[in-house]
């Protein structure tokens, strides 16, 4: 590895996977729910039927490239 001059002198210590996992499950689900609301609720599927979610975030949905009408 001595030819890699870009690498820092002290190697960063990885965070143990068992520490990451609970947060990854909890956070991952929460974040995907957020993306779902902006990107897909009342499009292909409806989880919570409040008619205006789709209409309210409609410009963001199209500009972010999610499939829509």
């Amino acid at each position: 590895m001595s030819d890699i001059t870009f690498a820092p002198e002290i190697r960063p210590v990885p965070i143990p996977v068992r520490e990451i996992l609970p947060w990854a499950i909890f956070g991952g689900l929460l974040m995907i729910l957020g993306i779902y609301f902006v990107g897909a609720e009342e499009g292909a599927t409806t989880l919570f039927s409040s008619l205006s979610t789709h209409e309210f975030v409609h410009d963001a949905r199209h500009l972010l490239g999610f499939p829509c009408h």
């Binding site: 990451i20 929460l30 974040m31």
Partner: peptide, 27 residues
């Protein structure tokens, strides 16, 4: 307000996922 909400919620969610991947990748 709609575009603002959509952008911010999407940004927060992407930022959160990013931090989790970062936690795994770092080091």
């Amino acid at each position: 307000a709609g575009l603002l909400t959509g952008s911010v919620v999407y940004g927060a969610a992407i930022g959160g996922l990013f931090s989790l991947v970062f936690a795994y990748v770092y080091g």
